[in-house]
Amino acid sequence: MKTLLGKLVINYPYLFAVVLFIIGTIIVLTRDNLFKKLIGINIMESAIFIVFIAAGNIRGGAVPILDGGRADTVYINPLPSALMLTGIVVSVSVTAFALALIIRLYKSYGTTSARRIAEMRNEVLKHDSSHQS
């Protein structure tokens, strides 16, 4: 089992995390709608979370909450979950601010499509430059 596929089956959470990350990238890059781009960013973030949590996990280990006397318990690493707790809250803040910007853009341009917003901006800029000269 020294081939690439064999190693990837052993490391299956990383495999799925990479697939999720690439799907998120494709959603961000190929969809025009701003909501779809936001959802893609959220998917990419969750792929990063999966990598960190899988790195700290132990197969058959115990939850990092002390249970008294038993001395032979193998606890999992509590550090990645504490770091990712911060990451989740930051992701909620980023999503909220992006949603506010989407509302603002919709009020100004009347659409949530990034391509049409860019076209409108180009027209306005062209009009301004011709007006000045």
Binding site: L4, K7, L8, I10, N11, Y12, P13, Y14, L15, V18, V19, F21, I22, T25, I26, L29, T30, A54, A55, N57, I58, R59, G60
Partner: peptide
Amino acid sequence: IIIVALLAAYGILVAVAELPPYGM
């Protein structure tokens, strides 16, 4: 975009396969 993303996925997968085995 899709072709470049799949190439990047292959690169990341080759790197990820060399990580220490999951769950040890």
